[in-house]
């Protein structure tokens, strides 16, 4: 599945497209807990989260995050988006909840990351 397809499924708004939405996304993980995300992400992964602070972007310095989806209408501050731009990390917002977003993507064939 590409990031473009994911944006369509989630009726998402692209805050930053990184190097393009045609990038392949092999799997995803959803959580609002940083340590949980760090523990469960061992391969390139799409992250769904309700967290919008700078540590979410900092996470992508440590582990391989393909893009971040901010769920249930959360929007990061401009300075957070700027941090993502410096890193080439795509950011997408959706009004859907974490549960609904995850269900839709899973149903469309996006597997969960290996934990």
């Amino acid at each position: 599945m590409t990031l473009q397809e994911i944006v369509e499924i989630l009726e998402g708004e692209v805050l930053f497209a990184g190097s393009g939405l045609d990038v392949e996304v092999p799997c995803a993980f959803a959580s609002d807990l940083i340590s949980d995300i760090l523990m469960c992400t061992k391969e390139p992964t799409l992250l769904l989260t309700g967290l919008t602070n700078n540590q979410v972007i900092r996470l992508s310095d440590m582990i391989d995050i393909i893009a971040v989806i901010f769920v249930r209408g959360k929007r990061p501050l401009d300075e957070i988006t700027e941090m993502a731009m410096e890193r080439g990390l795509p950011l997408i917002c959706t009004d859907l909840t974490m549960y609904r977003s995850s269900g839709l993507l899973y149903g469309a064939g996006l597997r969960s990351c290996k934990i």
């Binding site: 340590s35 949980d36 523990m39 967290l51």
Partner: peptide, 12 residues
């Protein structure tokens, strides 16, 4: 509030 406090850092 920042997303810490799962109690998983040291086990990690």
């Amino acid at each position: 509030e920042l997303g810490f406090g799962a109690g998983l850092g040291l086990p990690n």
